[in-house]
Simulated assay, not measured.
Amino acid sequence: MSDNISGQPLPAAQPVPAGQGAFVGQVAIVTGSESGIGRETARALCAAGAAVVLNGRNAERLEHTRQGFVRAGFAVVSCVADVTDYASCERLVAAAIQAFGRLDVLITNASISQRAYFADMQPEVFQRVFDSNVYGSVYPLKAALPHLTRTRGSVTFISSISALNGMPSGSAYCAGKAALANLAHTLRLELDHTGVHFGIVHVGFTQNDPDKRVLDAAGQPVLIAHRPARWQKTQAEVAAIILRHIRRRRRRTVISALGRLIVVMHTFFPRLGDWIVLTTTRRLRHFYE
């Protein structure tokens, strides 16, 4: 996938706009911000005073998002980049430095999900989903770390409540998201001396864009599994929680009552938790498929 910084060329770093808000003077990269939670998190950061680099793989959709942000008066540039390719991530970080001269916040949100049971999945599909969730965070962070160290910045990995206890039909996705929690913990220990914040947010069921798709066992895009509307938060609500997590430099944030219940069950009553999942798998199969 080729990379391109949208908008007018920026021959030198531009000053981060002044204003009011918790993130005034800060520069953020939000991967996977052409749509969905990533887009709304980027919007919330801009509204809070940050300059933001938007990212995605679909050039048309990314440009549409960028133009909407520009019309709203936000300080943004965009960069088409596949976050599972390290060279692309280097160019993504370079876009932030070229445009704004610094980097304070990295949110690794881009990933691929699935609706497929492990026994049915093609190996290359498992790898594609897993890589998007693990290397899609590792590569942007590796490219950004020197700049984040200079600013004693913040890194937030976007995970899922399904990583807390596993979920049928989500093996590669759950494994990848769970790996991020251990990665964040390890980096906090290794890089404590840098002052960089490493956190993880476990997102619960969230309203999706109408064209949201996940991969089936053969790697074909299909609609996401049904979720009752009463269980879902809006993308804007999730974005607000993510910003609060970053502002408070929290280690872990679990979104939704269901997510917190999963933590309790997994920690203190793991067998009961598994029984509940197995029972719902049999009785509410459409919930997973």
Rank of each mutant, 00 (worst) to 15 (best):
G101V: 15
N165F: 14
E289N: 14
M1K: 03
V52L: 01
T279S: 13
G73F: 06
W275D: 09
V70I: 12
R43K: 10
R271Q: 08
A94P: 06
A94G: 12
S88T: 00
P221V: 12
L278I: 11
I241E: 11
L103Y: 04
A217N: 06
G259F: 07
H193P: 00
K233A: 03
L145I: 03
R61E: 01
G36T: 09
S111M: 07
R227I: 15
A47H: 06
D82L: 08
V70H: 07
I276V: 08
R43S: 03
G73D: 04
V264R: 12
I29Q: 02
L62Q: 02
A181F: 10
V52F: 03
N182D: 14
L215K: 02
Y139I: 08
N55K: 04
S154D: 14
Q67Y: 02
P168S: 14
T41L: 11
G38K: 00
A239P: 00
R61V: 02
I97T: 12
Q122H: 04
T267C: 05
V134M: 09
V27A: 14
F74H: 13
F269N: 02
A143L: 06
Y135I: 08
A59F: 00
N208T: 05
R247P: 03
S154I: 05
V83A: 01
S137M: 06
P140D: 05
V70D: 02
F157M: 15
H185G: 10
H226G: 09
T84G: 02
A87S: 07
M1Y: 02
E40G: 02
A42D: 05
S160I: 10
G204K: 09
Y139A: 04
S169E: 10
T234L: 07
P146G: 08
S154K: 15
L243K: 02
G49F: 01
A72P: 02
G56I: 08
P17H: 00
T206G: 03
A51C: 11
I29E: 01
S154A: 10
S162Q: 13
S111D: 06
F126P: 12
I276G: 08
C174E: 06
W275P: 08
A18K: 12
H202S: 14
W231Q: 15
H266K: 03
L148K: 14
T65R: 03
F287D: 11
A96M: 01
S256A: 02
R102P: 04
V52E: 01
N58T: 04
T267Q: 13
I158P: 10
A48D: 04
R249C: 12
S33F: 10
H147Y: 12
W275I: 10
L145V: 03
I37D: 03
E90A: 14
Q235P: 01
P270T: 13
G73M: 05
R227V: 15
A184D: 09
F269A: 14
I158S: 07
G273S: 08
